[in-house]
């Protein structure tokens, strides 16, 4: 399962960005391979519709779960349409957030 978290920088610090559509980067963690990678979010500089563009990026990357601090209403509709599960959580270290999420699933 691939889990995405919006983050402020390309690493190695993986602090969550409080924004989703306008976040600069996404950290994508694959729980099967236990590897993570950081990708750029093209929505960061989009003139309009940053949220939907970000959802498209996640869908194309095969993401199934999003952990974010704030998800806008348009992005929310798109996440539902793209069948990406999402959870709004307190901003924190992205790795800790993913660990906590996997633990809650018994993984």
């Amino acid at each position: 399962m691939k889990i995405a978290v919006p983050v402020l920088g390309p690493g190695p610090d993986l602090m969550m960005d409080e924004r989703f559509g306008r976040a600069r980067f996404f950290w994508i963690y694959d729980s099967n391979s236990k590897k993570g990678e950081v990708i750029e979010n093209p929505g960061y500089s989009a003139a309009t519709a940053a949220g939907p563009a970000a959802v498209q990026t996640l869908k194309d990357a095969g993401v199934e779960v999003l952990l974010a601090a704030n998800v806008g209403p348009k992005a929310r509709d798109m996440l539902v349409a793209a069948k990406i599960e999402y959870h709004e959580i307190e901003p924190q270290d992205a790795q800790k957030a993913v660990e906590a999420f996997l633990k809650s699933r018994g993984l």
Partner: peptide, 8 residues
């Protein structure tokens, strides 16, 4: 150009 289309 306006991100007005998504494809799932």
């Amino acid at each position: 150009h306006f991100n007005a289309i998504v494809v799932f």
